[in-house]
Amino acid sequence: MKRTRWPGRPAGEQPEQHYLIEPRALAGGGDVRHVFAFLLASGWQDIAKKGGPVAVRSPDRTVRVSYDPYAQPGGWTIHSAAQGQQAPWQAVLGPQTPVEIVAALTDSLVQPRSAHAPDAWAPLAGQRWKTGFDDRHFTATSPDGAAWLHFRQGQTGDAVWWSGARDQQGNGWSAQFTATIPLHLVAAFATALASPEPVMRPRGRVPHSTRIRTTSVSVLPWQLRAWQQARVTAARAATWARTWPAHPPSAAPRRARSPFARARARR
Rank of each mutant, 00 (worst) to 15 (best):
G154D: 10
A192R: 10
W227C: 00
A263H: 15
G51V: 06
P259D: 05
P112R: 09
A261C: 04
P196A: 03
P15K: 08
G8E: 06
T156Q: 12
W240L: 14
A55T: 13
D107K: 13
D31G: 02
P69R: 13
L40A: 11
P123K: 02
L40F: 06
G30P: 02
Q45G: 02
Q96G: 00
P59E: 10
S142E: 03
A87S: 13
A188Y: 03
A104N: 03
I78D: 05
R267C: 02
R201T: 02
A71F: 06
V186Y: 01
P253H: 05
A81N: 11
A25W: 05
G170K: 09
Q85K: 13
G132T: 08
R254S: 12
A115T: 14
K49Y: 00
H18Q: 09
V199R: 08
W76I: 02
R203Y: 07
P15E: 06
D31W: 06
Y19I: 06
A82E: 11
A37F: 06
A165P: 00
V232W: 06
A194F: 03
T77F: 00
T214G: 02
V160T: 15
I47N: 06
Q228F: 00
S250D: 15
W162M: 10
V102F: 01
L193H: 03
F177C: 12
G94H: 02
T214L: 08
A234N: 12
A11Q: 12
A41D: 11
T180C: 00
V160P: 00
Q111S: 13
S209N: 07
G126L: 07
I21D: 04
G12M: 12
V63Q: 10
P73H: 08
A37G: 02
T243K: 13
L183W: 01
Q90V: 13
A175S: 11
H184L: 06
E197P: 03
L105I: 03
Q86I: 04
A27S: 15
R267T: 11
A241C: 02
A230D: 13
R136M: 09
A103N: 10
A246Y: 14
I101V: 14
I47E: 09
W161R: 04
T77E: 11
M200C: 10
S258G: 07
D68I: 05
P112N: 06
A82V: 03
P95A: 05
P253M: 07
H184D: 14
A238R: 13
G52I: 02
T178E: 13
A238V: 00
G74S: 09
D158A: 15
D135S: 07
